[in-house]
Design a protein around this nucleic acid. Structure first.
Length: 174
DNA sequence: ATTGGGATCGTCT
DNA sequence: GACGATCCCAATA
């Protein structure tokens, strides 16, 4: 079943944990989510922490929508917005294990290994870019599904690549 | 196995 | 005008 609005209204740290093991689906491409990071409103590492800008405005919108941004001049990263409108929090999808459409992902990536084991890599593998910024992930062809899979054990650690609030253990993986 | 540098450009100060 | 919620390759140990 497709994850719906209520799922994304739970506390953001809980959403980040519970997204692990769910399936990220974009058309026929599917991958098991294996790593996430939470970004909270009073968190200096969060793009929204210094107010709304054109880039981060989707984070201030309704839950269950995709926040896709472009960074380092060459990579896209994707989040799912959590919390009600005007509460700017989100969960970054950092890695997935390819399940379906692997051949297409390999084509998109131009290599056979390390297909989707990073936030920029999975966006390239799935063909996710700014065109998907702001779209509703509770319906349509870009969604997260629960197929009953549950991770055996979930680990946590520091978030990657940030300077501010780097001590928070808000990265989850299995 | 780990580390360091370069690529590259949209966004924010 | 500076720098990033990154990736890849090459060099090192």
């Amino acid at each position: 079943m497709i994850l719906k609005r209520e799922f994304y209204l739970q506390p953001t740290l809980k959403v980040a944990r519970e997204l692990l093991g769910k399936k990220l689906c974009y058309g026929d491409l599917e991958g098991r989510i294996t790593e996430t990071e939470a970004y909270l409103k009073d968190d200096r590492a969060c793009h929204a922490s210094r107010g709304m800008t054109e880039r981060n405005s989707v984070m201030f919108g309704p839950p269950g929508h995709a926040y896709v941004y472009f960074t380092y001049g060459m990579h896209h990263c994707m989040n799912v917005v959590t919390q009600p409108e005007s509460v700017a929090e989100a969960v970054l999808i950092r890695a997935v294990e390819p399940l379906n459409g692997v051949e297409e992902m390999i084509r998109n990536r131009g290599r056979e290994k390390n297909i989707a084991d990073g936030p920029g890599k999975l966006c390239q593998a799935f063909g996710i870019d700014k065109r998907l910024n702001g779209i509703d992930m509770t319906r349509g062809k870009f969604v997260v599904r629960d197929d009953g899979f549950r991770p055996k054990k979930i680990d946590k650690g520091r978030r990657i690549g940030i300077k501010l609030d780097a001590d928070k253990l808000w990265r989850f993986y299995f």
